[in-house]
Design a protein around this nucleic acid. Structure first.
Length: 514
RNA sequence: GGGCGCGUAGCUCAGUCGGUAGAGCAGCUGGCUUUUAACCAGCGGGUCCCAGGUUCGAGUCCUGGCGCGCUCACCA
């Protein structure tokens, strides 16, 4: 689509060609009649849901029936009948029909031509019904609160172009049924997480997003530059190492709902910035984290969906605790057909699967695990006790020196969470950092986080830590197949060249910075 | 980054074998006092994603590019 700037009929300022000439002409007509199409004040509107509730039913009219009400919202369509017209109006709470009748609006009637679907209106009128019995606000006063000069999407299909839905979420939110509900549920899920943890004595904290070193996960970071310190900083890939410093600091139970940034590809499950709940609890361990995770997820499901049954990507799941627990090495044996530490047979299996050698046996072994086991993890299931080598921040298992006390949670074959009994031995931690750095893996940290090791030297209590992918949890609880449908503004390639039309010459600045 | 698919009016989409660019909705004009995707009559609206090429002639075929989707890879 081109975005060439064109002069508007009223010659005020250039507009993009999204603004329709017919609508711009109405803007000019309104101004010529002394009416501001963008008045400074809104109206004192009653939420539409309350109007509907107050209207009652035909047989049992409510307290607002036949009363004067004032509402405000976006007009989605206009059905004109000569001396009568109907229009649905939506606000954040619901949708109701407005009725325009010439006999009730004699002075205004000529001005009905100013209305277009998409306009934001303030309506004062009497709550009544039509002959078909539909609850209707019969307007006695109509104010255009903001003119919609861009033509909204076609009314029946709505906005279906997926790219346009994401690029213009501000249209998608009212033009496509169900979109806003997903984000309202997302907000309730976040509130529910906070309520759940706050009730258990957790303190919500905020730790640096701009970090001089990055760690706590294996991922490539985004790099930025801080001019005042003339230093490169990294956008965090995880808050983990800062949160555990707070456990050293004696806070004992902390969590952060953290936006993380990873310089990686996009998929239905991945966005370069994503939200992760991370929490740490002193005197707990990975077993405690399992109980916390399943308890929280079950309770969120009950809160959001009034039950633990969910439907996701064509399958049904039950999020009732407790979830199944299965050992990593047992699952490995079962699905890969050999022991996880049998190098010869694991390598043979990898060749059979066409997996290319990532350079180290533990990674290769885990690649085989992912290729053979993950598809079977319909879950909800905790996969427990991972090989120590792929867990640089987890404590060794007291029962088996080859394993670490770690679990990952899967639902629908999708990784939802990751937790450990946290490693708190500073010497061991230093050693494992050093191995990571020496591995020359391009996703390993480039330097040892000495300050973190020093924090451990002061003593960190035994603790459990849990990371939960909030976006993926929202996907499950709202039945959305892709992460983009639970992110307001998912990452997209920026528009370039002519498609932008944001040059200052085309869009003169109208207000100084605040 | 690879593979597959898509890109045509403001929106949703047709477009046959390569032969003058189409529909519905939206818009404009007129009609209509109870509609629910209202209806009826008329009108306006196109850089067929971009750039090359083949051809008498390209929305259509070819090459390259851009964008998006799906998928694979990447993502402990």
């Amino acid at each position: 689509m081109s975005r060439a700037a064109t002069a508007s009929p009223n010659d005020r300022a250039p507009m993009t060609d999204l603004a329709h000439p017919d609508r711009l002409r109405k803007l000019a007509d309104m101004r010529a009649a002394g009416v501001d199409p963008f008045p400074p004040r809104g109206v004192d509107a009653l939420p539409i849901a309350q109007v509907i509730a107050g209207g009652g039913s035909i047989d049992a009219p409510g307290p607002l029936a036949a009363k004067r009400v004032q509402i405000a919202g976006r007009m989605l369509a206009l059905r004109d009948f000569g001396k009568l017209a109907f229009a649905p109006l939506i606000d954040r709470t619901g949708k109701i029909q407005i009725g325009f009748a010439k006999e009730r609006l004699p002075d205004w009637w000529e001005r009905r031509k100013w209305l277009d679907h998409g306009d934001l209106l303030g309506i004062e009128g009497e709550l009544g019904r039509t002959q078909k019995g539909e609850l209707t606000v019969w307007a006695t006063k109509v104010d255009i609160l903001a003119k919609c000069v861009a033509v909204p999407p076609e009314k029946w299909h709505g906005l279906v172009d997926i790219e346009q839905r994401y690029r213009r979420r501000y249209v998608d939110l009212w033009a496509k049924e169900g979109v806003r509900e997903v984000f309202e549920k997302r907000a309730r899920i976040l509130a529910g997480v906070r309520r759940f943890l706050d009730a258990r004595g957790y303190v919500e904290v905020e730790t640096p997003i701009l970090q001089p070193l990055y760690g706590g996960a294996a991922a490539r970071p985004f790099v930025t530059h801080y001019n005042a310190l003339d230093s490169d900083f990294f956008l965090r890939i995880a808050p983990e190492l800062y949160l555990k410093r707070l456990i050293v600091g004696g806070m004992e139970r902390v969590y952060e709902i953290a936006r993380n940034f990873r310089n990686e590809g996009l998929s239905a499950r991945h966005n370069p910035e994503f939200t992760m709940l991370e929490l740490y609890q002193a005197q707990s361990d990975y077993r405690g984290m399992m109980e916390l995770a399943e308890g929280m997820i079950e309770s969120l499901a009950r809160e959001i969906n009034a039950g633990t049954q969910i439907h996701f990507r064509g399958a049904d799941y039950d999020l009732r605790a407790p979830f199944v627990r299965r050992g990593y090495i047992d699952l490995f044996q079962e699905h890969a057909g050999c022991a996880f530490d049998d190098q010869v047979r694991v390598r043979a299996k990898a060749r059979e699967l066409g997996i290319k050698d990532p350079g180290s046996f533990p990674k290769l072994m885990n690649d085989v695990f992912e290729a053979t086991v993950e598809e079977h993890l319909q879950g909800p299931i905790f996969v427990t006790d991972y090989p120590l080598e792929i867990c640089p921040l987890a404590k060794v298992s007291p029962r088996d020196g080859r394993l670490a006390e770690r679990f990952e949670l899967f639902v629908g074959g999708m990784e939802l969470g990751n937790a450990f009994t946290e490693l708190n031995d500073p010497q061991d931690q230093y050693q494992r950092f050093a191995e990571q750095v020496a591995s020359k893996d391009d996703e390993a940290p480039s330097a040892i986080d000495i300050d973190y090791v020093q924090a451990l030297e002061y003593g960190m209590p035994p603790a459990g830590g849990l990371g939960l992918g909030i976006d993926r949890l929202v996907m499950l609880l709202t039945g959305q197949d892709t992460i983009r449908d639970v992110l307001m503004f998912p990452a997209l390639r920026p528009l370039t060249g002519e498609a932008c039309a944001t040059e200052p010459a085309a869009a003169p600045s109208i207000a100084p910075g605040r």
